[in-house]
Design a protein around this nucleic acid. Structure first.
Length: 965
RNA sequence: AGGACCAUAGCUCAGUUGGUUAGAGCGCCACGUUGACAUCGUGGAGGUCGGCGGUUCAAAUCCGCCUGGUCCUACCA
């Protein structure tokens, strides 16, 4: 093995090997365990969020696989309607200077498929680099043939049940992308805006109670004035009671519009009068419905002003009686230009009362960045009410459990206030809506054109045209858990793996995806899609900022794995910026943060970092320091393994039946291992990946490496003779045979514990664990020969019979003595390598027995040349002292110890004890504590006080003795 | 406006049902090239657990209020 851990050399080969050996497919045996990967965008690339999420899923899957479960990790990608279409449109524009309209629908879609074939492998390659053990043989795509069938089926059935309907509704319209988008795709951003107060003249000579001939309405959107069909006042508002039912004349247009009474008008805001534009505002739409006002649309699909308005009733039927004329001056003006023109004209007409600056929130399309316009358009909707009910119940009654639990509230809050879901998108890339129209505009919904004709008895020569729209991407991804398993066919996979076990996802798509999956899955399979939802936070940068290209703080997981030099990193972060002026600042920040670029860390270290940071219910501030730390941890494991192999390969590791004797240390580390196995298993069960990784880390580094490997050295390297030299009394019966049995026992333990560590580590660190296991397992007798893999070894199960409390206490004692000596060395500035003589006094029988059994360990680890019992404490030479329980560890000072330093050290120790004593005495002095606290708690405090007091007594004696010198 | 979550060492975070001498990693200081590892070892410094109040014999932990931060939902005529 190389002296240092070099991940790039081992990671490349193992993944290919596993995949080639078919290790990722379900075993077909054991209780099923399934996870469906949240399908990433097919043309996307793997970001930190994916890497994090995939690490968690892979850890779960590898763990369950080792437990013998029949595991399926379903992989696939999403066609991602808008995102992909935009990407390809930009590409075509850049490369061919053509728009999608230049190409036409079919040719454009061909281009998208082409792009998919070209770049769709990118993210799947990256997934492989992360070590994700997904079943590639079942890879799916949300627009493959099977999904096409599932989507048609769901749409048609919902339509048959009248849960899908079509209508002219006000929807969020993206004027750039020319499509409807859902509420969820709208991002509200605070802006500073203008607030214009307009006068609307009262018609027919009417005046207000105060004698004014007009009403004042305020708006941030003057251009919608053209579509006003009423002015609302609050029915309770005495100021305007007499005007209800009267009319105002809409300025600039001249339309007579009524004053209506509606609770929407807030008496305390502005003048208390509100202009009502049902075709351009969601609230006004509702007012229009209540007050039976016409809807007058004044915008084109680009959000420019129409030359003639379009009037409808609330059902979307045209209203031929409404005068559609608009002032010619505005025709064709963009909404923002129209706004300026209208304000200017109102001012010129003396109808602008005042202008204020206000903070308001504007809706932006999260894809286009354009201001979203509520627009009256024909769209398809899912009536969600009846679907939501079972979906809510599934969570209420525990069929689906959110981890952490508080996300259930978020889910309920949203589900109980659902609006019908607008599922049509005016895009080309996606599942085309299975609806056909005849010449009269009658609509026929069916699985195919042919079925439409059969179903409705339409003649073969009757012209039918399919709906141009496609479905919202989330409509198809909502079928992910069962669509991937072959639905609507009643497949074996569906029977085996559905409902799936757990969904791992970010809270940001609970509404987009999780809620819709639950609704659609309950509806069509009668089952929940998954039993548990593990919700994780967002991966942020080290300062807690969201990673984004425009901030220039994006980290690419692959760069953390392979490393990247500074110049390449700067180039990556500053290239292709939307705002190129930011490049300089980004470059500087990058150079400051990564002066040397980023070193390679390997996949295992990155995964371990994610897991250690995967704490519940909070976002992750990605910590480069921890990444370094866990890379070092891999190196530690690597080198510990080198040590084990050096001492065990070609040696007797107790595989045959020769006698084996386990030392105290052997029994102790085996006992500790059981606890670690139990801890890691429990943590994984509870989704506490941070605890799981920490338990492993601590065991490997702080117990196995720091102590056990050190304790193994005297056994393996030092002859019995040598220990006898150190011994004050005789080593008894240290025969060659006994020594051989002891060595065998230690080698066997070294190897077996390491082998178990590797299995325990494998779900978290698949590569390094496999690499080392291949060498170690044969020595432990757990390898079935060439071609075997750690992936399919049994998960370690703690065996309580191997817990050894006596050994643990003995080792704690030994550690205590060793640390005491080291402490004296460090504080007294005694060279670490200088052999010392140590005296022990005030020991119990147990202490004496422990010393007798552990002389060699003590001598080696504390670098002692002599250890002796001092029978009469009064005769102790002047020494530096440490206490281990009641026992005193003395390092005689002669020629070694600095008097002042020792006094200082003792003073510090005494002070510490004093503070403790104070605290405990205060507690015990409190009568109600003694009276009311459980007896055990009180007794514990008393014992503690005794301990601390006697420690203090010894320290004070010691101090006095030295001070008297 | 309503709601959620967070606030513990310089930094990133643990802390199970209230009882611990409040922990880890990184960073910091001192010493150290002992035959697995300097991507290391040994020892150490560093916290009135955001603030105030309450419940309790006992609060980092439970309750209330406040401050600061993140986010979601709604509204903003």
């Amino acid at each position: 093995m190389d002296k240092t851990y070099q991940p790039e050399q081992i990671e490349s080969r193992w993944y290919e090997r596993w995949e080639a050996d078919g290790r990722f497919a379900p075993s077909g045996e054991g209780t099923p365990y399934a996870i469906m990967i949240p399908p990433p965008n097919v043309t996307g690339s793997l970001h930190m969020g994916h890497a994090f999420q995939d690490t968690i899923m892979d850890t779960l899957i590898r763990w369950r696989r080792m437990q013998g479960r029949n595991t399926l990790w379903q992989v696939g990608t999403d066609h991602a309607g808008i995102a992909t279409q935009m990407l390809v449109e930009r590409k075509v524009a850049a490369e061919e200077g053509k728009s999608r309209f230049d190409l036409g629908r079919e040719a454009f879609i061909d281009k998208v498929w082409e792009w998919k074939h070209e770049s769709g492998g990118h993210i799947t390659r990256q997934l492989r680099r992360m070590g994700a053990s997904v079943d590639w043989s079942r890879e799916r795509f949300t627009m493959d043939d099977g999904f096409y069938q599932a989507v048609q089926e769901v749409f048609v059935r919902l339509h048959e049940e009248e849960l899908i309907y079509r209508g002219k509704r006000l929807v969020n319209w993206d004027p750039t992308l020319h499509t409807a988008i859902s509420d969820l795709e709208v991002e509200n951003r605070d802006q500073q805006g203008q607030f214009w107060h307009f006068r609307y003249p009262l018609a027919d000579g009417v005046t207000t109670d105060t004698g004014a001939d007009h009403l004042v309405v305020a708006t941030t959107r003057p251009e919608t004035l053209l579509g006003d069909t009423g002015v609302a006042v609050n029915p309770e508002d005495p100021r305007y009671a007499s005007l209800i039912g009267k009319f105002v004349t809409l300025p600039l247009v001249g339309r007579r519009i009524p004053v209506v009474a509606d609770e929407h008008a807030d008496m305390d805001k502005g003048s208390g009068c509100v202009k009502i534009t049902p075709a351009h505002d969601f609230n006004d739409y509702e007012v229009g419905r209540r007050q039976d006002l016409p809807l007058i649309n004044v915008f084109t699909q680009d959000a420019a002003i129409l030359s003639r308005a379009e009037a409808f009733d609330i059902q979307g039927r045209p209203l031929p009686d409404v005068d559609p004329s608009l002032p010619a001056a505005y025709a064709g003006l963009d909404r923002f230009a129209a706004r300026e023109a209208i304000v200017a004209d109102m001012q010129a007409a003396g109808l602008l009362e005042k202008t204020e600056t206000v903070n308001n929130t504007l809706p932006f399309g999260d894809r286009s960045g354009d201001v979203i316009e509520p627009l009256l358009t024909d769209q398809w909707f899912v009536a969600v009410e009846s679907l939501a009910r079972p979906a809510i119940e599934a969570v209420e009654n525990g069929d689906i459990e959110f981890v952490p639990k508080n996300y259930e509230n978020m889910y309920f809050a949203w589900m109980r206030d659902l609006q019908d879901w607008c599922i049509s998108r005016q895009l080309w890339w996606g599942h085309r809506i299975p609806a056909w129209y005849d010449a009269e505009g009658n609509v026929y919904v069916a699985r195919s054109e042919q079925e439409a004709r059969e179903k409705h008895g339409l003649s073969a020569d009757m012209a039918l045209t399919q709906d141009d729209d496609v479905l919202d991407t989330w409509f198809s991804s909502g079928l992910w858990t069962f669509g991937t398993l072959g639905w609507p066919e009643p497949t074996e996979e569906l029977a085996t793996f559905h409902p799936t076990s757990v969904l791992v996802t970010g809270f940001d798509i609970i509404f987009f995806w999780v809620a819709r999956m639950i609704m659609l899955t309950c509806k069509f399979t009668g089952e929940v899609p998954f039993r548990q939802v593990y919700v994780h936070g967002l991966v942020r940068d080290g300062q807690g900022h969201k990673m984004s290209k425009s901030k220039g703080n994006v980290l690419d997981p692959i760069d953390l794995i392979d490393g990247i030099d500074l110049e390449t990193l700067v180039e990556k972060r500053t290239g292709n910026l939307m705002q190129p002026q930011k490049a300089k600042a980004i470059a500087k920040a990058t150079r400051d943060e990564f002066p040397e670029g980023i070193e390679p860390h390997g996949t295992d270290a990155l995964r371990f970092t994610f897991l250690s940071q995967a704490t519940t219910g909070r976002d992750i501030k990605f910590d480069m320091g921890r990444l370094d730390g866990y890379r070092n941890f891999c190196n530690k494991l690597w080198n510990a393994s080198r040590y084990v192999l050096m001492n065990a390969e070609g040696e007797d590791t107790g595989l045959d039946h020769a006698p084996v004797e386990l030392s105290l240390a052997d029994r102790w580390i085996v006992s500790q291992l059981q606890q670690t196995e139990a801890q890691v298993t429990r943590a994984l069960k509870e989704f506490r990946f941070d605890h799981a990784s920490q338990a492993l880390y601590e065991f490997v580094w702080n117990e196995y490496c720091d102590w056990y490997l050190e304790l193994s050295k005297p056994v393996l390297w030092d002859a019995a003779q040598e220990s006898a030299n150190v011994a004050g009394d005789r080593m008894s019966g240290a025969t060659d045979a006994a020594s051989a049995a002891a060595k065998r026992g230690t080698r066997r333990t070294l190897v077996r514990v390491l082998e178990a560590i590797l299995r325990l580590a494998h779900p978290m660190m698949p590569f390094i664990s496999e690499e080392i296991w291949q060498r170690v397992a044969p020595l432990a007798g757990t390898c079935q020969g060439e071609g075997d893999s750690i992936m399919v070894q049994p998960w370690p199960v703690a065996d309580d019979r191997l817990l050894d409390e006596a050994a643990t206490r003995d080792i704690e004692w030994l550690k205590g003595v060793i640390v005491a000596v080291r402490n004296i060395r460090a504080e007294m500035n005694i060279a670490p390598g200088k052999p010392l003589e140590v005296l022990l006094t005030q020991g119990t029988e147990t202490d004496r027995a422990r010393l007798a059994a552990n002389r060699l360990f003590l001598a080696k680890l504390a670098k002692l040349e002599r250890v002796d019992w001092l029978d009469d404490p009064a005769k102790a030479p002047l020494s530096a002292t440490q206490l281990v329980g009641e026992m005193e560890v003395l390092v005689p000072m002669a020629g070694l110890i600095d008097k002042d330093a020792e006094l200082k050290r003792l003073a510090k120790e005494i002070d510490k004890q004093d503070k403790l004593i104070q605290g405990i005495e205060k507690k015990l002095g409190n009568e109600s504590f003694v009276a009311k606290a459980p007896e055990a708690v009180v007794q514990k405090e008393r014992d503690k006080l005794d301990d601390v007091q006697s420690t203090r007594r010894v320290l004070v004696e010691q101090r006095n003795k030295i001070a008297a010198l």
